[in-house]
Design a protein around this nucleic acid. Structure first.
Lengths: 228, 228
DNA sequence: ACCAATTAAGGTTAATTAAGGTTAATGCTT
DNA sequence: AAGCATTAACCTTAATTAACCTTAATTGGT
C-alpha cells in the first residue's frame, strides 16, 4: 500500500484531502504541525510527501529541505495557496519535486501523486537513517550516533551525525551548501555557514585516516563525499 | 549540454520560448508540426521534450505516447492552453511527466525542466557525468574532480571541472563560446567571457604535456577539444 | 584582388574579492 | 563542571575582475 505523509494545518481541507486519498487506497498520515514531522519520520517512512507551505512553527520549504536531507529520493509535492512564481522557485530549490497551487482538484492531486511515484519506479528507495552505512573502511551507525573505524569507535554529536547523514545520503553526488544549511539549520545565515565549516572540518578530521574517502569542497556550490 | 525538443505551432510563442531557453544554455530544437517529430528523433535524441497539445496533424497526447513508446524514460512536459483537469489527466495518461498551463512564466518552465532532469539523474546512476573519460594519455574523472596524468593526479576546482566536462562531452566537435558561458555562468557578459579565457588557459596548462590532444580556438565561434 | 590599417576576439598575468578553512573563545544545557 | 553548539577572529585559496598584450578577421583604399 502506498503511504502518503500529508502536512496541512487547515483542519477542514486536511480532513477532506485525507479522506479522499484514503478512498483511493492510499495510507495517509496527516500532520498539522511542521515541528512534529521529523520525529514522526522515524516511525513512518512514506512513499511520498504532500506539504503545505504556510505552517505553524516550521515552514514548508524548510520542512522539505529537512525531509530531502534524510531521504533524497523521496518525492515531495507542495500544495499551497502561494501562487507566485517566486514561491514555486523556492519550493523546487528546497528540493520539491512538484508544486500544485490552490485551489486544486483532488483529481489533479491524485494524478500528480501517481506520476511522482511512477517516475521513481526504477529508482530504489532510500535506506533510512536507521541502517548501517559503509564509508570507505569505516562504518556509520546513524541511529547510534557512532562511527566505527578499524581501531576505535567515535561517538558523534547531534550536529556531526546530521551533517554526516546528509552527506552519506548523497554519496558521490554534489550536495549544495545551501541545501545542507536549510535542511539542518533551517536558514543559511552567515553564522550558520561558518558553523557548517566547523563541522565539515570535524568530519574531515575523523576521515583523515581513511584514504578511500574524501570530502571535497566545490567552491560556490557545496560538497561531495567521494568514495574511491 | 542539455537538449530540449520543443514542439509548438504558434510561431511567436515558439520563438520567445526557444530563445529564452537557449539563453539559459539549453540546446533547443523547435518543431512546429507534430508529424515531423518522430522522423527528427532519429537524428536528435533530446534530454527532455516540451510539447503543446493542440498541434497540426498529430495532437500532443498522441505524440507524447509515441515518444514514450520509443524512449520510456525520456521526460515529457506538456505546455498547453488546455486548463481543465480532464486534459491534465489525459496528459499524464499519455505518459507525460509534468503539465504546465498557459499562461505560464518562463521561470516556471525552466525550473520545471530542471526538476525533471534532476529527478532522472538521481534515479539512474550511470549518467555521463559519472563515467571516466580518456583524453589523450590522460584520464578525466568528472565526479571525482580529478585529472589523472601518467605521472600525477591533478585536482580540479569546481569551475575547471565544469569547463572540462563541457568540452569533453563534445570531443572533436566545436562548442560555441556563448554556449559555454550560458551553461556554466548563466550569462555571457564581458567579465565572464574574460573569466572563461582564464579557465581555458588553465586547462591548456594541464594538457600541455599531452601532445595527442589540443584545445583549439575557433575565433568568433568557440573551441574544439581535438584528439589526434 | 591585394595589402595595410583597424577593430574585435581572445590571451596572459596580476590584483582583488568572496567563499571557505582553521582555531580559539564564548555561551548553553544538563 | 562537562560537553556540545555557536560565535568570532583571522587565514587560505578559488573565482572574479582588471589591465594590458597578441592575433585573427574585417575594412577600405589602391
Amino acid at each position: 500500500m502506498t503511504r502518503v505523509l500529508y502536512i496541512e494545518d487547515e483542519p477542514s481541507l486536511g480532513k477532506i484531502v485525507s479522506e479522499t486519498l484514503q478512498q483511493q487506497g492510499f495510507e495517509v498520515l496527516h500532520i498539522a504541525d511542521g515541528a512534529r514531522v521529523l520525529p514522526v519520520l522515524n516511525g513512518f517512512l512514506p512513499d511520498i510527501c504532500v506539504v503545505d507551505i504556510m505552517l505553524p512553527n516550521v515552514d514548508g520549504y524548510t520542512l522539505c529541505a529537512q525531509i530531502k536531507g534524510r531521504y533524497p529520493s523521496l518525492p515531495v509535492i507542495f500544495l499551497t495557496a502561494k501562487t507566485e512564481t517566486a514561491d514555486l522557485v523556492k519550493g523546487f530549490e528546497a528540493g520539491g519535486t512538484d508544486y500544485i497551487r490552490k485551489p486544486f482538484s483532488m483529481e489533479e492531486l491524485i494524478v500528480r501523486i501517481n506520476n511522482q511515484l511512477k517516475i521513481r519506479v526504477n529508482g530504489q528507495k532510500d535506506n533510512e537513517a536507521v541502517s548501517v552505512r559503509s564509508i570507505g573502511q569505516y562504518k556509520f551507525f546513524p541511529m547510534r550516533y557512532e562511527l566505527e573505524t578499524p581501531t576505535t569507535t567515535i561517538k558523534l554529536s547531534q550536529r556531526e551525525q546530521e551533517v554526516l547523514a546528509l552527506l552519506t545520503n548523497n554519496m558521490n553526488q554534489p550536495v549544495e551548501r545551501k541545501h545542507i544549511l536549510l535542511s539542518i539549520w533551517g536558514d543559511d545565515s552567515y553564522f550558520n555557514s561558518r558553523n557548517l565549516d566547523v563541522y565539515i572540518r570535524k568530519l574531515r578530521g575523523y576521515f583523515a585516516q581513511d584514504s578511500q574517502v574524501e570530502l571535497v569542497t566545490l567552491k560556490g556550490k557545496g560538497y561531495v563525499f567521494l568514495e574511491k
